[in-house]
């Protein structure tokens, strides 16, 4: 058994186990943490097959953004997960059937997969051999050159989404107390501290 096979079994065991724990654990925060563990190990699997760009994206997008968002939702909103989980056994047979159908379909698709005859010729940018460049470099080469207009436009779409979120939610409250950095820095000992003599039994 060589080293990569060892790591493959290590990562996949942890992925499956932590995926199971996501639905099995009682505490929703633990569920999210197990989800993150599953993502990180799936990223490890991607590295093993030489898709290190996908591995990085999985970590950055799913762990960095999606899972943290889940964590926020779980911790900020008062969702009663125990109540949601009621009737788990009751719905188990239906869920098992649906899962079985999905599994069969996946196996059928993977088993009968063929690539179209003209597909190889239709690729607009040929994929350089993996021995010459890493796939991150290969994507970067076309993303910032041939397809730079898509990239810029997608950036503009995200900018509009950001403007929209701010327009629709930002409240300019007049009573809100804001930090005034220059005023803070300009404070001296004389202006910040006042010494009073306190008489016994009276207070200020």
């Amino acid at each position: 058994m060589n080293l990569s096979a060892l790591f493959f079994y290590l990562f996949s065991t942890i992925v499956v186990a932590s995926a199971f724990m996501v639905i099995a654990s009682r505490n929703p925060v633990h569920s999210v943490l197990f989800l993150i563990l599953a993502f990180v190990n799936a990223a490890g699997l991607f590295v093993l097959v030489g898709a290190e760009f996908l591995a990085m994206i999985l970590i950055v997008v799913y762990v960095g953004a999606v899972a943290v968002l889940f964590l926020f939702v779980v911790m900020m909103l008062d969702v009663d997960f125990a109540e949601l989980r009621q009737g788990f056994l009751q719905y188990l047979p239906v869920g098992a059937i649906v899962g079985f159908i999905f599994l069969t379909e996946l196996l059928l698709i993977v088993g009968t997969w063929i690539t179209g005859a003209g597909a190889a010729g239709a690729i607009r940018s040929p994929i350089p051999p993996a021995s010459e460049v890493t796939n991150t470099q290969a994507i970067g080469r076309v993303l910032y050159t041939t397809y730079v207009h898509y990239f810029e436009l997608a950036g503009l779409v995200l900018l509009v989404a950001m403007i929209g979120a701010i327009v629709l939610t930002l409240q300019h409250k007049t009573q809100a107390k804001r930090q005034n950095v220059s005023a803070q820095n300009a404070r001296t000992k004389a202006s910040a501290i006042e010494i009073r003599k306190v008489r016994r039994g009276q207070g200020i």
């Binding site: 207009h149 898509y150 436009l153 779409v157 509009v160 929209g164 327009v167 629709l168």
Partner: peptide
């Protein structure tokens, strides 16, 4: 098709926001 979709989303996202501008 990619350009089509990006243009469509750029327009639509702006429209969603300005439909709700009187928030």
């Amino acid at each position: 098709l990619v350009m089509l979709y990006l243009g469509l989303e750029l327009m639509s996202l702006s429209l969603y926001v300005i439909a709700a501008i009187d928030r």
